[in-house]
Design a protein around this nucleic acid. Structure first.
Lengths: 212, 212, 212, 212
DNA sequence: GCTTAACCGAGACGGTACGTCCAGTCTTCCA
DNA sequence: TGGAAGACTGGACGTACCGTCTCGGTTAAGC
């Protein structure tokens, strides 16, 4: 099944240009915002011809998604380096046996990340694009969001085995009770984002709203 | 505190043009999508000069926000008309005494609304724009989202008085446990949106994840 | 034979506005140039509604032509005031008996006038417009240029009677030999405009190019 | 002395577009007149992006000047082709020994040209623009008018050598006696343009107005 | 080691939309 | 009812980018 039209030869691709484009795209999104970031601007800042961008990506969002993926990969690697422990899982959720404490810990880390300007600008841009562009949205979720959520699924399953979470629950849905509120506050500015808030979310979610 | 610069005289504003612009904006967003909706396109479809748009609004997003607000207002009015009951609250959440049932009912209605193409296109566009444009995002939330959420706050407070919800909970946060997951699935395509799903959310949220 | 459509009633016309419009038009043409002079600009500077201009004139050029006519009229009146002599002819060409001297004198005065910025800007603008807009051009010539040229015709006829100009010549054409070169240099920047130049023109024209 | 700002690379210029723009500009000026000729109109008629015009020219007048220059160049070339005689001078003035006849001949040809609609529309437009825009006016004169006038200078000098014109005359001024009147009549509609008229001009100019 | 095909930087090209400025018309309110 | 004010439709302005398309130059693979 051959490519329809002159698929570029990836083996001859310039690594140098690819990196420069990632850097330029992330820098511009951070500096001037996503809407004012243009393909021409990226090309010019990267010292690259426009065609080199169009050859390998299909849109501005596409470039940014890959650039952000690359950035996340680097960050994950760096984080793994710092954590010499046995648990190999990158960015894994700790399992100390205290579910509430573990979740609160991870959510606090997420709060920190959401405030890191280097991450905020591109991820917000991609999220926004994804809202209106379903194809990109699904890619964004599949490559970036879902892997993160899977960690919660794993932790919740472990908690079910330990008897800390009801066994009949669907962990994929359960995690949304405390993850989605944070996501929405961040995406839509519906409320402040604090440690206290995420701690509260965990408590509410685990214990339920109804009296015991 | 004088007006900045030659503010137009609102009393002379053409109601006809305003309506035509709202209609054109909503129609175009629904037909060709938000990114391909242009000010020129709106003006042309509305049979209006571009300047008439720029005179009263500052951006495409601004036009759409007002158009959607207007549309929502009309819809609310129409709904109020249909409900001859004593409870005057527009779009109010029913209070039958059964909290779970009431919430499930309202969330199912929300599911229906999220699927109504007439609402979906513009609200998705506004949400996307709001993610990346904080000023607009906050206006979107304040004028459209928060009033809806307030209804949940009211219902939860009533439930607290009835002893169906723990009295120490913050209702504004509590509601997020079942509202935000739906919002996120809709915004980010993180999962299917069904009645079953929203029913499950209500059950999980009221009873909690931990065993009783 | 009534006017086709609501001919304005000239008797109720505001003299105040008319004057203000003339002043504004002349001032703007002098300050920003003819192309950047706009009807809106004139109206605003004159403190007048746009409609008041459109009611009485049909175009920017039309306004300027009348304004300039008015200005010329005033100037002629002022000049007449300064000249208490018996000869009533306004701006008349002196008739001392020395044709060459008289023509040189008048042409030198014209040179001065062509350099007066108050006259230059509007008359140049009108001339330019007239080149490309035949109707206006003809009006410009008929109301402003031709009356001036008629003075030369008169003087040349007088000279013919005195035997200083060949009797068979057409004075209307003859005058062009020394007037048109000056006009062209002014209109088209084809050469410098000096007293020496106009003196030379008179000499060449009177004596001819061929040896005597 | 570096180029001011990102001068375009002339070697990559599209000859095809340049020609199409010339053709469109000349056609539009002839069809709808100079004031109604717009850059957008030229671009659209030429099947060219607006930017392609703005890249190489600074204004509508600029485009037209070059287009007309090009047209004149072609016409001159075509004329040279038709004249297989030894005298290489393009558009040269004949030198039969009879100055009056030669001048009358050339002026009659000029009368014809002034009436050729293909030349009239653009040259009138350029002349008008030049009246009000000194920079363009000077370019118009230097590139189009002056070279023509130089031919008269040459012919007059030859006549001086032959003793047909007084030796002390400045030919550059002398030529204006019969050229400028024609120019003015054409530019300002101050009179009809006929062979008889130009013949008369030559007679008057050569013999002078004063009796012999 | 020399050819050759590709990627590459550069940027001109045909387009679309931007946001602004005016033209000329229409409407409202004041004197 | 003339005039000041200014909102209206409409259209051109000059600019910014889009995505496509050459144009040398450089660079790596294959002969």
């Amino acid at each position: 099944m051959a490519q329809n039209q002159s698929a570029p030869d990836a083996t001859r691709r310039s690594e140098r240009s690819r990196r420069a484009i990632y850097d330029a795209a992330l820098a511009l999104v951070a500096e001037v915002g996503y809407p004012k970031t243009t393909i021409e601007g990226i090309a010019s800042r990267a010292g690259v011809g426009k065609q080199t961008i169009y050859r390998w990506w299909s849109s501005k969002a596409d470039v940014l998604l890959e650039a952000f993926l690359d950035l996340s990969g680097q960050a994950a690697e760096a984080a793994a380096q710092d954590r010499p422990s046995a648990d190999a899982s990158p960015y894994g959720i700790p399992d100390t046996g205290d579910l509430a404490a573990d979740l609160k810990h991870v959510l606090r880390a997420t709060v920190d990340e959401l405030r890191d300007p280097a991450f905020e600008a591109p991820s917000r841009a991609l999220a926004a694009e994804g809202v209106v562009n379903e194809a990109l949205g699904r890619r964004f979720v599949a490559t970036l969001l879902e892997p993160q959520l899977q960690l919660y699924v794993d932790r919740l399953r472990s908690a079910q085995e330990a008897g800390d979470v009801r066994p009949d629950l669907d962990p994929r849905i359960a995690l949304e009770l405390f993850v989605s509120p944070l996501a929405q506050r961040w995406l839509q500015y519906t409320g402040p984002i604090t440690y206290e808030y995420t701690d509260t979310l965990v408590d509410y979610a685990l214990n339920g709203l109804a009296p015991r």
